[in-house]
Amino acid sequence: MRLLAGLSQKSLARRIGCNTSYVSKMECGAVPPTVDFARLADDALRAGGDLVDRWQTWYELRRRGDAGRQTAVSEAINVETASTTLLVTHERTTLSFDGDAYAITVLRELENRTERSYNGYEVRIHVDAFPDDVERSRVHHRAHPLVWDHLGFRCWWAPMMSDLDPRKPGAGPTIELVADPTQTVTDKMIEGWIRFEGKRYGELLTLHPGRRLALMYSYTVSSTQWGTWYQRRMRVPTRRLDVELDFPQGLRTLVWGKAITAGDRIGPLGSQIDEHTENGRSIWSWTNGKPEFGDRYRFEWRFGNPPSRQPEEHR
């Protein structure tokens, strides 16, 4: 990536604030990578999160491989208590389909375990109408790219997660925040930045060390851009993850899922996906009380009575 960016080791070292010999040792594997280095190099090389993802994969494989060796355990990084990252104490995501578009709402309670203050939070939105067919997906999304202004993205701040109600955005002690796109990574992926700044009155909010806050954000994606799947990757240490998938009962939806480890091993979710009906809706719920850092939890579904509008009509 450094060579593709046209940078020397000295130039990269200057950009991320370390010495040239450290960059050299990192590249040849003489020293173990750190998450701070991965983040700084990712930003300097405009890698779009790929270097951080690679560090997470490396760390998870190392952690699991060393689990039985006491010496390695004593030296291992405790991701949850590390001073380099935020902690998500609880995340609750709802995906709702009306036959034409998917509405996604994410609630996160954040705890600042670092030694610095935060004035914003990064989000990543990724869609794929045909995740199992790379070429078809590329052609389709080039004609139907993901556009920030079409998402209707909105976000809110509250002191506690219980203050946020996805059915009543803006109700209670909440403040609507400002959000901006930071880069369009591909035709299927956009990164954005939630500013801890009130949209109406311009309040400046900060997440200080040792403090918590709750965020809620929502957006809508057309069914021409979204396939029959939803996935959460644990990019931030998370204590609890709740996922709810909400469909019209008339679609006769069947939902299943799988867990994919950082080493790309596929296995069961570990707990059952429960279904119940409510007001003509089929609601599928799943909870993980201890999601693994770096793992992916993927949900897929099939409609027994599919809606008339499907991505195939827009090939």
Rank of each mutant, 00 (worst) to 15 (best):
R92H: 15
I125V: 14
H90W: 00
E75Q: 15
V139Q: 08
S96A: 13
T114R: 06
A143H: 01
T81F: 00
V88M: 07
I104L: 13
T84Q: 04
R54M: 12
E60Q: 13
I104S: 07
L110C: 03
H126M: 09
G48D: 08
T105F: 08
Q70G: 06
D128N: 13
L110M: 11
L86I: 01
W55S: 02
H140R: 08
E122V: 12
W58D: 07
R136Q: 09
E115T: 11
S117N: 07
L107W: 05
E75A: 15
Y118Q: 06
G120D: 07
G48M: 10
V79A: 11
E80H: 09
P131Y: 00
D98C: 04
I104K: 11
T105I: 02
A129L: 01
N78K: 12
L61Y: 06
D100L: 09
A72F: 15
R142N: 09
D53L: 08
A76F: 05
H90F: 02
L86F: 04
A103Q: 12
D66V: 05
H126P: 05
A44Q: 03
T84D: 05
L61V: 06
R113W: 05
T93D: 07
R54S: 11
A143W: 01
R54E: 12
S83G: 06
V88Y: 13
V79I: 14
A143T: 10
A82F: 08
A103F: 11
V134W: 13
H140V: 00
G99W: 02
G99R: 02
E91H: 06
Y59I: 01
G68H: 03
V79C: 03
L61P: 00
A76L: 06
D43N: 11
W55F: 15
R138P: 04
I125N: 05
